[in-house]
Simulated scan of single mutants.
Amino acid sequence: MTDIEHSIPNDDIAPDDVCPGADLSGADFSDANLSGVDLSDAELMDTDFTNADLSGASLVETDLSDAKLWNTDLTEANLSEVNLSGANLFNSDFSGANLMIADLSHTYLSRANLSNANLWGADLSHTDLSNADLFGASLLNVDLSGVTLSRKTTIDPPEDQIEGNENKLGEEQYDQIARANHELLTAYSANGLTGRARTARVRERKARRQEALAEEGLGGTIAWFGSLLSQFFTGYGIQLRVVVGGMLLLYVTSALVYSVAGGMTPVDSLYYSIVTFTTSPPTEPTGVLMRIVAGIETFAGTVAIVFLGYVLGTRERV
């Protein structure tokens, strides 16, 4: 390491002192150029790295608790098992960084760039991720309890974070996807982002369905089929478009049958269908086909209305 390669403008520290295992707690590295530096297992508690360049640096198992890393460049850095608890990471760039099993609890990551970062097994509990970019970041086995999210926080679906062919995923991979979606569901709900919470729940249920199918047994097949029926009929109990779409299809199809087979005018067939759908046929249906369709519409309409009430009562509690 030479002075040309690295510069430390604000503290009486020689570049050669910046090495693995060094105790540099409380040092001022603001605006420093430490690109590619190796500070593995170093003590950097309460250190100031504001506006510093740590791109490509090795900070494995480093203690950076309560450090200041505002606007710090940490692109492609190796931060596996690093301790960043309580650190201020506002607007820092962690794109492509390795943060496996890192402790990021109680950190301030607002506006931080974590795109394509590997956060597998990281602790993000009670972290502020408002307006943060996590596009392409791996959130499998991540703890998101108490995390702060905003509408501008960007997070990729966990199922897109499994490498390899999706057709070859096994029970363990689907379990990881389901758990990650459950963490997101809880975090979104706690932050009032109910729309995203519902989406996360659907993804969680789909992952559990695929996990059941991957069991390759009768029990798994039955569980898979039950989950499929739940998605088809109620959208896992939270998607209005599934139930409303089915209701409209039943109503319009029945009205068409009444118009063609019963000789009704379009207006009369629509009226007959809506009354039959919600209560029972206003008049005795004529012909075998009319009777069959009216019976199905009355029964299915009652069931659909029950489903609609269930979905409306459930979706906002997600």
Rank of each mutant, 00 (worst) to 15 (best):
A294K: 05
A214Q: 10
D46K: 10
A214C: 08
G21W: 10
V293D: 05
S105R: 01
Q161M: 15
S254M: 08
N83E: 07
L184P: 01
L24W: 11
I4M: 06
L44K: 05
P9V: 07
D3F: 00
L104Q: 11
Q239I: 00
F49E: 02
A102F: 01
D46E: 12
Y271E: 06
L84V: 04
D48V: 09
S92Q: 01
N113H: 13
F135Y: 11
L256V: 13
D3M: 01
L99V: 10
N51Y: 14
P281K: 07
W120Q: 10
F90H: 11
V244E: 05
W70R: 02
L24V: 11
A132P: 02
G195P: 06
E76S: 13
D66M: 09
R111F: 14
S130D: 03
A87C: 05
A223D: 14
A190R: 09
N51R: 10
E81D: 15
S130Q: 13
T148N: 12
F233C: 06
E171V: 15
V82Y: 02
G146S: 09
R205C: 12
D28N: 15
Y258D: 08
V311P: 02
E159W: 01
E216N: 15
L270S: 11
I238D: 04
A187D: 03
P281H: 05
E297P: 00
N167A: 15
L129H: 07
V303N: 07
A14C: 02
N51W: 13
H126I: 00
A87D: 02
A87T: 04
A77S: 15
G26V: 11
F135T: 14
L308E: 04
D48A: 08
V275S: 04
V260Y: 09
D93F: 13
S254N: 07
D11A: 15
Y174Q: 05
D46F: 06
E284H: 05
A117Q: 07
G136N: 10
L248C: 13
L249H: 02
E284F: 08
E171P: 01
A137Y: 11
G245S: 04
N165P: 01
V244N: 07
T253D: 01
K68R: 14
A137L: 12
A294W: 00
F225I: 14
L289F: 08
G263T: 12
T62R: 00
E215N: 08
A197G: 09
M264G: 00
S138L: 05
D31Q: 13
L256P: 00
F277M: 13
L218Q: 01
V303C: 09
G56F: 09
L218N: 00
T50L: 03
G301W: 11
D11K: 06
A97V: 06
T127H: 03
R205H: 08
